[in-house]
Design a protein around this nucleic acid. Structure first.
Lengths: 155, 155
DNA sequence: CTCAAATAGGTCAAAGAAAGACAAAGATAG
DNA sequence: CTATCTTTGTCTTTCTTTGACCTATTTGAG
């Protein structure tokens, strides 16, 4: 069953697409539309549109206030940057966010995306917690490295 | 005599078939349906739908949580064979041999080969020895399943 | 102009929801 | 009898939802 957060995410997503990568929303309006607490909308924005997925979040309070979401496309040169942003510990959700972004921006094929996702899944990495995130960060960087240094090879 | 686990397996199996290879189930609902502990459902999933048998297991906790099962169809029986041969522990050299063979047989593209190799490398898997080979086996199976379940998708 | 009211978003913690991990007890096959 | 498989229960982790309180902006009365 899709949670309320999922529905709100979908809704906001459609607004962003409609605005070709940019949307200005009013928290209270969306909350009213879904009959939920305004902070629920904040939660959705924080959890579904974070910088890891390539969104810039700006806002203004008071009369005529808004929350602006802008999708930033990752260029070829900034991929290394993503890798160093990832750091030495990486949770599953952070890792998935990065992958999502790389794919959305056309730097990763669908199949490679799925393979990497599988390698980074909590399921495959049956370790206790500080270890798991450390190994995940290692694997993440190793795979991206391999992928981007074997460019111009097909599949 | 058919055990409860067998009945639950059958039931979930039918859901997967109904969904043409994919099912999203709610653990608590299934448990209620069979009047058993929720962890029983986890047991069935772990014991009857493992990666060796070609299933991908994903899940989400919390409100609106679910367990998603995806069945991987392998036209080439040899790949499933490789997976079960691989066993629960896999050394780097064994893993590399399998990858080499899959590539030679045309089942793996060059780039995917490199990515998988990186993920399975001793370098990425900075763990002590019994652990390392166990995690490697997990990752290996997860990646193969992901790769072959996303056939027909490019790169 | 000044400042208080109205407007609107931010933060955080607590409660609720649902799955995961694991151990222990029970059943069964060999 | 023993090893393996099943079943249950308890505790943990993760994700969602709400509510109370805080901060920033605008507006308008005096």
């Amino acid at each position: 069953m899709a949670s309320l957060a999922d529905l709100i995410e979908e809704y906001i997503q459609s607004l962003v697409e409609e605005g070709e990568g940019m949307a200005e929303i009013q928290r209270a309006l969306i909350a009213a539309h879904f009959r939920c607490a305004p902070s629920q909308v904040s939660y959705v924005i924080a959890s579904r549109f974070p910088p890891e997925r390539g969104y810039i979040i700006e806002s203004r309070r008071g009369g005529g206030g808004f929350i602006r979401l802008t999708r930033v496309i990752l260029d070829e040169g900034s991929i290394r940057e993503v890798m160093s942003d990832a750091g030495n510990y990486l949770s599953q959700s952070e890792a998935y966010d990065y992958l999502e972004r790389l794919r959305e921006d056309g730097h990763l094929g669908d199949r490679t995306f799925e393979v990497m996702r599988a390698a980074l899944s909590r399921n495959a990495l049956t370790l206790v917690l500080p270890d798991r995130d450390l190994i995940r960060a290692n694997i993440f960087k190793a795979m991206l490295n391999a992928y981007f240094s074997s460019a111009d090879k097909e599949e």
